[in-house]
Design a protein around this nucleic acid. Sequence first.
DNA 1: ATGCGTAATATGTCTAGACATAATTGAAGT
DNA 2: ACTTCAATTATGTCTAGACATATTACGCAT
Lengths: 227, 227
Amino acid sequence: MQGWEAVRAEVLRRIRARDWPPGGLIPGEEALAQEFGVARATVSRALRDLADAGVIERKKRAGTRVAELPVRRARLEIPVIRLDVLGRGLTYGFERLADRLGPAPVPVTARLGLPEGAEMRYLETLHLANGRPYVHEVRWLNPAVLPDPPPDFAKVSANEWLVTHVSLVAGDIAFTAEPAGPREAEVLGVGPGTALLVAERTTQGTAGAVTWVRLAHAPGHRVQLAF
Amino acid sequence: MQGWEAVRAEVLRRIRARDWPPGGLIPGEEALAQEFGVARATVSRALRDLADAGVIERKKRAGTRVAELPVRRARLEIPVIRLDVLGRGLTYGFERLADRLGPAPVPVTARLGLPEGAEMRYLETLHLANGRPYVHEVRWLNPAVLPDPPPDFAKVSANEWLVTHVSLVAGDIAFTAEPAGPREAEVLGVGPGTALLVAERTTQGTAGAVTWVRLAHAPGHRVQLAF
DNA sequence: ATGCGTAATATGTCTAGACATAATTGAAGT
DNA sequence: ACTTCAATTATGTCTAGACATATTACGCAT
């Protein structure tokens, strides 16, 4: 190893070895650059990387200090369901259970910042892996983001069409565990009350709210993150 | 906005405006630097940032192209439970339900890469928010990472002690929804079979496997990620 | 055609120096 | 004692130029 990665590794080693204790100041960029015999920009690159990782905290004038509680950040790559299924070595399919226009429920419009009772497109989809129910998707979609004529969601899944045709700017995702309601129990083929992993997503595009989705996963589903 | 952030913003705008379509090559750093009137390093910084975000893909000699499926990455900041509770404006407390040495079950040793039947420290903790059950924690801890004498986990929670005293290097976290078992139902004060959000974590330190944890959250718990 | 080595090229990284910016410190004035 | 303002200082960013490295494309030999 060489260059900024070597600097990062050595700084990290000293932090882990408690040479530089949590909360303590570490030497300035200039000093480290001299010590390692590299340019200041190289040290800066290494320290920026560690700051991104949450290992150190940097402030102008105040210097760089070792984080007290090194915040552990895990990254989740939100998959397109079809690729997720294929990536697990299973065959993919889906059934469109509903597709209509109607007034969206209040929790949905509220989360998306749309007026109460706004007309939205309602899509209900059952995703299949090896022919068996995998995820039950309930989606409210802002029709303003769709072209005229709208795409045929019987052929392309809404998620996939959106990802490739609409620029998604911001959003959030939340996981909860919920008992299967009657509808979910029916389409997923499980008993009512079965524990389901539910992901709820809202997404904003360049031109405002795009979609709200609820994904109820079949039992046994794991959402895996690495750090 | 100015500098590399301005470059990033403009490049992102063009991608979103489909000036540069998904899968397409974008101009090289040199060309962009000339166009924007900045140094190549500045363009490079902007593009590196976009590549980190998954918007573009860069390869030496092959150039930079717009990602086909812009992978959406969400970040989860793994909280120390005490701070998580306090951050929600609730009071924190915990009860140590068990603390003993014993052979760890096979799934645990397997995940941590330890020999089958290894002696580990078993800790069972109930975390309380406003005096009510919040999370049921089951932990197997590699005693090799503890100092002699070991810390008193009746006073400090194991997680917090580990975060501040052991350098955690790698790990992973998985979420599932599971029905409450008899033990969990009892300590969390819910009916058996209630849907619980379960987080399972394994953690490695510099000197090998550190700990395996299972956190069963009280009903209603949401794990929120932003992207 | 097919395989192999070589040249071309875009990104990756580094250097040395400069100026910008934020936060702290200390001095001056009230 | 308290406030205000300026000097200081560490990080943040930028420039111009250089060399490193991975990968592709092409020409040559088989």
